[in-house]
Amino acid sequence: SPTVSMAELDHLAHVVSKSHLETCQYLREELQQMNCQNFLQDEVESYQKKPREVMWQLCALKITEAIQYVVEFAKRINGFMDLCQNDQIVLLKAGSLEVVFIRMCRVFDSHNNTIYFDRKFAGPDVFKALGCDDLITSVFDFAKNMSSLHLTEEELALFSAFVLLSADRSWLQDKLQVEKLQQKTQLALQHVLQKNQREDGVLNKLRCKVSALRSLCSQHTEKLSAFRAIYPDIVRTHFPPLYKELFG
C-alpha cells in the first residue's frame, strides 16, 4: 500500500469532504430549516394511485437528478479526472447509483422510517405503484442501517469516494491507478475514524455495506429490465437520457 503522511491524509479528507458538501444536493441544516413534513394520507394515496409507468418515470427522474450531483462529486475527487475517460465512465456507471444510496441516509428519518422525496418525507408505502416492494424494502433497510452508524459528513464523504473508486469494476483499463486512489481514500477514512475515536468495528461494518450496495444495484437493474419488458416505449421516450445511458 502507498506510503502517505498524516498531513496528506488530512488534506485528502478535507478536499473530499468539501467536494461532498458542495455537491450533496441537500444540506441537512437546509432540510431541518425547511421543516419538511411527512406526506398526508391522501397524498400517499395519490402516489399509490398513479399508473405504474408514471411513478417509474418520476423515480427515474429523481435518481437521475441525484446522479448528476454524484458526477460533480466524482470530478472533484483527487485524481479522478486524471484517470482515462474510459475508467471515469466505468466507475460512474458502476458506482454512481451506489453513492446515491449512501447519500440517502442523510435524508432518512429513522424515527418514522421516511425519506425525503418530492419535497416531503415519504414512507415505503408512497412507492407502492412501482410494483417492486422488495426493492423498496431493501432500500429503506439500507438507509436505516446506514443512518444507525451516525457517520459524520466527512466520514460519509470518504466512504462515498471509496465506493466510487472501486478498483474491482469490470472493464477498467488502468486498474492499478484506481487501486492506488482507492487505497489512499481508505487510509484517509481509517485516519478520520480513528481521529473521531470511532470503535474499530465501524470500518468492518462499512465493508459489509459495499456488498449490500452491489446487491441493491443489481436488484434495481432486474426491476428495470422487468419494467422495460412491459413498457419498452415508455422507457425509450420518457426516461431521462442519462438514466438510459447508465442503466440501459
Binding site: R76, I89, P241, L242, E245, L246
Partner: peptide, 16 residues
C-alpha cells in the same frame, strides 16, 4: 463514446 454521450459531456463541463 457515442454510447455515453451525456456522461462524456458532464465530465467535460468545467466544475461549477
Amino acid at each position: 463514446k457515442e454510447k455515453h454521450k451525456i456522461l462524456h459531456q458532464l465530465l467535460q463541463n468545467s466544475t461549477s
